[in-house]
Amino acid sequence: SPQPTPKAQYTLTYASPYPPTHPFSRADTAWMKQVEKDSGGRIAFKPFWAGSLISSDMSISEIRHGLADIGLITPIYTRGGVHLQRAQAGFYGGVKTMEDQVTIYDCLVPRFPQLSAELSGLHVLAVQGGNFPGLMTRNRPVRTLADLKGLRLRTQTDSIDVLRALGADPVNMPMAEVYSALAKGVIDGVVAPADTIKSLHFSEVAHYFTTLRLSRGGYPARAMSDQTWRRLSPDLQQVLEQSKPKWEAELNANNARAEKAGLAFAKDHGVQIIPLPAADQARFDALYNRFALVQARQLNAMGIDGEPVFRAAQAHIASGQTRCTKEDKHD
């Protein structure tokens, strides 16, 4: 029940554009329970789901101005003011796990102040990785990269160049239209993580899922307004700081669970899962990175030096470290 306990010293509003049943929201709910417990009941939450309080692409501004105390932010989908945040999520080519995505982001933050500057007025409470998108196709299976030739694929902006270089015909359409576009053959496939096979019902209209992994980066995903942060007593601020890894672990766990459920659902519904040969994946990653570097350099037009960020992320991935190295911290 969303009713706050009467003794709570602070009742904080939490807002997300996702419905409460979404994997992100399950993690958010678990985190809220945890914080209520850790604070000894001094903090209570009042959640607002499904975009009832904040929007999906302007939530950074909305939280900054106190529409909600805490909320979900997606700098990777925000079109202004957070260009390095947005671009850096495309610098992780070859990254292996969601945990690594989060770690690398945390290592980049102290080295590149621009990342924090873009989120001024906000206090980041959790960083999030994400499932690796694969390729769902309608009736033309993709077994090697060569099979991409001529396929009309709905994809996110950061992979348009790569897919085009591989001979595909990338298109950009609202995700809400993908189901009917697949059903009617307006497109041949969609680049999307496996959990969408179940959640967006793609298994009804597409029959192949190629485990081509599109690399993704970590990004700050939950934030509190500075106004609210300053209102909290230091010990409660500490409770929130300490809950950060717990929230991140919940997010990763729920994402992983959703991906597993999506794949299981796909198998049950006759979707053929096609593993992409390792050599093709490596070739794809190399190509992906080549275009990521181009995108990093394009940030110069906005007065942002993106290339060092790209190099730092790639150096970290190449090193195979699971923690920030000394050099990462002090460079």
Binding site: S61, R79, G80, G81, H83, T157, I160, N172, M302
Partner: peptide, 15 residues
């Protein structure tokens, strides 16, 4: 207010 904050932020469409 919102526009002033976004003014220097190079808000632009993706493609």
């Amino acid at each position: 207010w919102l526009g002033a904050e976004m003014w220097g932020g190079f808000e632009q469409t993706e493609l």
